[in-house]
Computed example of a mutant assay.
Amino acid sequence: MKKQAGANSKHASQWINTLEQYAFPFIGDKSVTHIGIDDAKAVLNSIWKGKTETASRVRQRIEVVLDYAFLYEGVDKSNSARWNGCLDHVFAAPKKVSPVVHFNAIPYINLPGVMQALRIKTSV
């Protein structure tokens, strides 16, 4: 598979590790031509509700791998890991499963003090 341009080693490691941990047990030995919607569901079912962000990333990564394989192996088949028009009919949208929780805003009047405190801090 083609390595992403500009991807750092940590990102590349996370990319393959999530596939090894979550996807390979279900589809690791299958030919891309035999991976279907039931396989995508099997990979995602156990993690969609409890690890929604991870599940969403795993789904996206499977989709990329299948797209690449279909393109370079001349497979004329729809991608069973695609969200729009496929898995969006099976799973609730990630934002509905794990809604985004934002930090509270600081009052505008306190912003100069917060900025000063941040400038003093050193990062590790």
Rank of each mutant, 00 (worst) to 15 (best):
S78Y: 11
A7S: 10
V32N: 03
A40D: 03
H34M: 04
T54C: 08
F70L: 06
A81G: 08
T18I: 15
K95C: 09
T122H: 14
A7Q: 11
G6W: 12
R57Y: 05
F26G: 01
M115C: 07
K96A: 00
P107I: 12
N79M: 03
V100R: 12
W15R: 08
L66Y: 13
A117P: 07
K30R: 05
R119P: 06
W48M: 04
R61C: 08
M1W: 06
H102W: 08
D38L: 12
V114P: 04
I109H: 13
Q4T: 12
S80P: 09
S9L: 07
F91T: 00
K41M: 12
V58F: 10
V97H: 01
V90Q: 04
I37S: 09
L66H: 06
R82L: 11
K2M: 13
L87G: 04
P107T: 08
L118Q: 09
I120W: 12
A12F: 14
D39M: 06
F26Y: 08
A117D: 10
F70D: 06
T52A: 01
D67M: 01
H34L: 02
V75H: 03
V32L: 08
H89Y: 11
N104I: 05
K95N: 15
I16V: 14
N79I: 01
D38C: 02
V97N: 03
